[in-house]
């Protein structure tokens, strides 16, 4: 009997000590399995994100194919230098995010935290530029649908198909959904930053940092296509 108890205790000890560190959920065999599952889940989520945005990209290309002249004319109202600045902001933040993940990987949480902070600063910078762009559009009445030029020219003519309000509809929908992702991203980055500060991550466990990083890179990825399509189209 005593041997059985010993064996049990031994197994228990071995279980909680080696195979199950504090960050390992009880339903996973080992940290690698947990990480693999988390990352696969993240990639599947990113796949759904891509599919969601693909619908908007399709709408954009459809509009372009139907009203090429209108798109040509009205994309000039977007400030390509502000758009370019935002592209640089997002690429830089993507770089600092990758650096944050790398620092977490090699077990340097302090460096990771400061890189995350820089990422957040650039993300906020992106939203500030976006704010100025949006307020300029609203001021000039460059808005979707019936809102177009309502307070500038006293509303649009009804039955005006393929007009600029269509372009600005697509513009606001695409950059708006992307901007929403940036805002959510800022929240996630801040959450990860706090966890890093609290010492939740180590070289053995940093999956949340990596997954938020993947999300943030996807946000950058979508902007890489949005920028030339909306701001630079010719």
């Amino acid at each position: 009997m005593s041997t059985a108890v010993d064996a049990g205790q031994h197994a228990e000890a071995g279980h909680s000590h080696e195979a199950h560190p504090s960050y390992l959920q009880h339903h996973f065999d080992n940290p690698q399995q947990q990480e693999g599952a988390a990352k696969l889940g993240m990639w599947l989520f990113l796949a759904t994100e891509l599919l969601m945005f693909s619908g908007l990209f399709l709408a954009y290309f459809y509009m372009r194919s139907q009203y090429p002249d209108m798109v040509q004319e009205y994309h000039e109202h977007l400030n390509k230098w502000l758009g370019g600045l935002n592209t640089v902001f997002l690429i830089t933040s993507s770089f600092t995010m990758a650096m944050a993940v790398r620092a977490a990987q090699i077990g340097k949480p302090r460096q990771s935290a400061s890189m995350l902070l820089i990422t957040i600063v650039f993300a906020i910078g992106f939203m500030v530029v976006k704010y100025f762009e949006y307020s300029a559009k609203i001021e000039h009445g460059l808005l979707p649908g019936d809102l177009f030029a309502e307070h500038v020219a006293g509303g649009v003519q009804s039955g005006w198909y393929g007009g600029p309000q269509l372009f600005f509809g697509i513009y606001f929908l695409m950059t708006g959904l992307h901007g929403l992702h940036v805002v959510i991203g800022i929240g996630l980055l801040f959450w990860i930053y706090l966890k890093t500060k609290r010492g939740a991550f180590s070289g053995n466990y940093y999956t949340p940092v990596e997954n938020v990083g993947l999300y943030w890179h996807l946000v950058d990825l979508i902007w890489i296509f949005l920028f030339p399509l909306l701001y630079l189209v010719k």
């Binding site: 993507s94 990083g213 993947l214 890179h217 890489i224």
Partner: peptide, 11 residues
């Protein structure tokens, strides 16, 4: 090409 860099290396 830019997307390829982001996906291949950053991600």
């Amino acid at each position: 090409i830019k997307a390829g860099f982001v996906i291949g290396f950053f991600m």
